[in-house]
Write a protein that binds this DNA or RNA. Structure first.
Lengths: 195, 195, 195, 195
DNA sequence: GATGAATGAGGGTTCATTCAT
DNA sequence: GATGAATGAACCCTCATTCAT
């Protein structure tokens, strides 16, 4: 029973990820998600409160998973610069494995249907931002990075650079390898922080 | 007559910029735009084909204006690094002066109601991207920037970094000065390209 | 223009009265009302806020009309007993002329979808109740009716008796004359108050 | 087995009475009734054909019970007027003891989702009406009441008066004693019939 | 008999677009 | 050209009922 419950939740989330990614949140129809998930329209409401709840759950669960794995990997980081490299690798790799999420991140995390929604979705990505900010702080402390860097501002610069690479890759139709761009992306970022 | 035509077109575009920015494309109602512009609902359809046409015209005209002014300013650039500084200043300044556009850029340029729409909207920003790419190319040629930089990839890194700063500023409710962040942003970008 | 507005409002109200009466409030579909009124579904929302607003307007306007005419007629009343006779005549006559309203009164004024709705609908009938209470008060004062009658309680007894006659007539399919029952109804009521 | 069957039937009916009373027929959810009754949703359909069947059974069984007890009590009536007093006492007392039924009577006996439903529900109250009509007939015969009274019409007047008192009491939130109103109610009714 | 997860039909409401004036 | 009343397609969500276990 519990098993089944999880199966359907997953099926719906997976279907939603696809439909949201293709059509955006507003363009996605519940009936389409249901069809894709192989359940009846009403069934969705046994597992989620409403359309928005699906989106939130999708973000939360995926990002929690992402952050959890990232933290593990980061334990092997030898330096702040190395840690940033791991972050970039992980982010790009994660996006390649979860293209739908990449779409969603691109589209919905930034969309602005109501300030409220944006705020909640932003909450879910905060743990990731905190990781980056922690690395910057450490880099400043151990002298790897310039003193005087504003932590938050710098985190935005780093995330923005990485994110734009993902966004362009998504918009391009993913015609090239994202992971191949890790070295040059990291070089730009790390150089931008040094000295 | 022609004069009047332009007046109304402008009034509608101005109204649309405001309404789109506040409510997003999907959330904006034609009737609200009409009211804000001081015309009847139906009048809008004498000047634009449909709701989407308004958005496209808005982007195109605003970005054309932006690029035109930027090009003028860039004639005084003393070096590629200086040119990038001017680009950043101009972009941030432009966003501060056109908050509505900043919102729109944040929201709609990235939204993805249909791949089709995104593609068209991206077209309008291309001239701006070409300017940045031209600066990078020049910087590589005159030795200011690292050789071996991939022009397009680098442009994305630069734009992504700048853009994230704007995005965060918008999301924050514009509670701080955007232009104050120009120096630290440029330092990150330029250092990222050097050596 | 104003004329048209009134025409449509009336057409919708008339259609709604019919559809509500036949199907009840919950059973009535907006699309049916629209069809009956000869307008598009959406047009209804240009004239009314929502389905409930139609019901309220229907009650309010009809009862206002009813009370207005009743007050005029009552000016010719020669005694409290005569006034009650006029009230009964008017109520029964009104119901015969507005069968749909009779249905509605029977059905919706009493229905209990939410306490809120009932309360509002009851408000509209209050002016009628006040008229009856005024007559009772006067009858006690001039000695026509028993002293010691509780005004409110007595009004309920009177209204209840009359109303049940209407209700039975509606339920029967209106196979007999309602006005023919005025004398016997009034006799019961007036005798019930005297001595 | 048979015993168990009755237990569950009763539990469901009792739960339904409560839920119907609070929410009305349309507003009541099968799942709520099931929860209140402590059974599964599907179980209800082992005991009743559908939602409407529950309502019918509820009315029939409750009113049968009511009429049965009333008949017993009426054997001690000393006169038609006394009998009417007993009827009123019993009706008011019954309503006070079965508030849920009072609500239901108020709401659903009169509701009119389909003429069909009303007709059936009315059937269940007929035995009560017949008792009242019998008393009137007897009163006319023994000279207690006016000759020439129309039996059916008079029954409606009596029931209407009593019922309105109950209805107002229910709507008021039952903030006062219903049984306290028996004397004045009976005085009105009996005076209305005499001479 | 009992369960409760699953079903899917049904409807109020919004709003981009049209067109008679 | 300008108006704005009218249109009607589109969609999320509820809940009575079913049926596999």
């Amino acid at each position: 029973m519990a098993r089944r419950r999880i199966d359907k939740t997953d099926a719906i989330l997976k279907a939603a990820a696809k439909i949201f990614a293709v059509n955006g949140f507003n363009g996605a129809k519940i009936s389409e998600i249901a069809k894709e998930a192989g359940v009846a329209d009403g069934t969705i409401y046994l597992y989620f409160q409403n359309k928005e709840d699906i989106l939130h759950t999708l973000f939360r669960s995926t990002l929690e998973d992402f952050v959890g794995r990232l933290k593990e990997r980061l334990q092997q980081a030898k330096s702040p610069a190395d840690a940033l490299r791991i972050v970039c690798e992980h982010w790009f790799g994660f996006m390649e494995e979860n293209v739908y999420l990449a779409h969603l991140n691109l589209v919905e995390l930034r969309e602005h249907i109501s300030g409220e929604r944006r705020k909640k979705l932003n909450e879910y990505i905060w743990p990731f931002f905190e990781i980056i900010e922690g690395i910057i702080r450490q880099g400043i402390e151990d002298g790897s990075f310039r003193p005087g860097l504003d932590i938050r501002h710098t985190r935005r610069l780093i995330f923005g650079a990485m994110d734009q690479i993902v966004a362009s890759w998504v918009v391009s139709g993913r015609k090239y390898s994202l992971t191949a761009l890790i070295p040059s992306t990291c070089e730009f970022i790390i150089k931008g922080l040094q000295k």
